[in-house]
Amino acid sequence: MTSEHHGLGPTRARVLALLQSAAAPLSVADVADELGLHKNSARFHLEGLREAGYVDCTTGATGHLGRPPLLFTATSDSPNVTNSHLMELTQVLIRSFVSSLPDASRLAEEAGRSWGREVSDDTEPATDVLDGLVAQLAERGFGTIRGEDALTFTRCPFRPEVGLAELPVVCAIHQGFIDGYLDSCGGTHSADRIQVGPRLCHLDLHDAGAQMRVAAS
């Protein structure tokens, strides 16, 4: 999840993520040491999170003379600032319920196709279908460069998170997503198979309408 969703700057999001993953309340010094921040900076961000209702603050016991430290914990109302829990759950579900099936890729594509149809906009003019597809992929974390007759994926949000054994199923879901989206939009575009590379992925596109116009001219 990005700051566009949770409304936090990068440093404050890191502070909240640390508190959410901590097994016990943390002090200002704990947060500063863990994230490499100055104590004043750590205190500033913790106070901001507390004012927003995302962090609770209690007084810790020291067992000796001196001012007891303030201890901070994330509240149940605090927003998720990472997707690691969802990625892990996705991997477990794919490994346990999909990858072991003999027709895992086909089922994954069918699921993706239904998903693509659900998000498509039937009122979209055919000339805007590819722009719409690129926008839908961007919303889901994909970096996509649109060429005249191809898409190049410069970033996949799943590649760094999902295991190699599960990645083909994820790719099949997104193949279905693209196919379902293009079919449902009612345009003339179709897609070849996604070519998965070591860093970039590539997808060739075909426009039957353009081909017919060329043939008729």
Results as ranks from 00 to 15, higher is better:
M1A: 03
M1C: 02
S3D: 03
H5G: 00
H5R: 02
H6N: 00
H6M: 02
G9P: 08
G9D: 12
P10G: 02
P10I: 00
T11I: 12
R12E: 15
R12G: 07
R14W: 01
L16S: 04
L16I: 01
L16Y: 00
A22P: 06
A23N: 08
A23E: 11
A23I: 00
P25N: 09
L26Q: 12
V28Q: 13
V28K: 10
V31Y: 03
D33T: 09
E34T: 14
H38K: 13
K39C: 00
S41Q: 05
A42M: 03
A42L: 04
A42R: 03
H45V: 04
H45K: 10
G48W: 01
R50Y: 08
A52I: 01
A52Q: 12
A52R: 15
V55W: 06
V55P: 00
V55S: 09
D56C: 08
T58W: 05
T59Y: 01
G63T: 11
G63S: 09
L65E: 13
R67I: 15
P69K: 13
L70R: 15
F72R: 09
A74S: 09
T75H: 05
S76F: 06
S76Q: 12
S76A: 15
P79D: 05
P79L: 07
N80Y: 10
V81D: 10
N83I: 05
S84V: 07
L86H: 09
M87R: 01
T90A: 14
T90C: 13
I94T: 00
I94P: 00
S96N: 04
F97G: 07
V98Q: 10
S99T: 06
S99Y: 08
S99W: 07
S100M: 03
L101M: 11
D103C: 01
D103K: 01
D103N: 08
A104W: 07
R106P: 00
R106G: 02
R106I: 07
L107E: 01
R113P: 00
W115M: 14
G116H: 10
V119Q: 08
V119M: 09
S120D: 11
D121N: 10
D121H: 03
A126H: 12
A126I: 02
T127G: 01
V129L: 15
V129M: 13
V129A: 15
L130V: 13
D131K: 08
D131S: 12
G132I: 04
G132S: 08
V134R: 13
A135V: 01
A135R: 09
Q136M: 12
A138H: 10
E139G: 09
G141C: 07
F142D: 04
T144L: 04
T144E: 02
R146G: 07
G147P: 03
G147F: 11
G147W: 09
A150K: 06
L151Q: 11
L151T: 06
T152G: 07
C156W: 02
C156K: 01
F158L: 15
R159E: 05
E161L: 06
G163F: 05
L164K: 10
L167D: 03
V170M: 12
A172V: 04
Q175I: 14
D179A: 15
D179M: 04
D179H: 13
G180F: 13
Y181W: 09
L182P: 05
S184F: 07
C185L: 02
G186R: 04
G187A: 10
S190L: 12
I194V: 15
Q195K: 14
V196N: 02
P198C: 10
P198G: 14
C201E: 10
H202E: 06
L203S: 06
L205I: 12
D207V: 02
M212S: 09
V214L: 14
S217M: 06
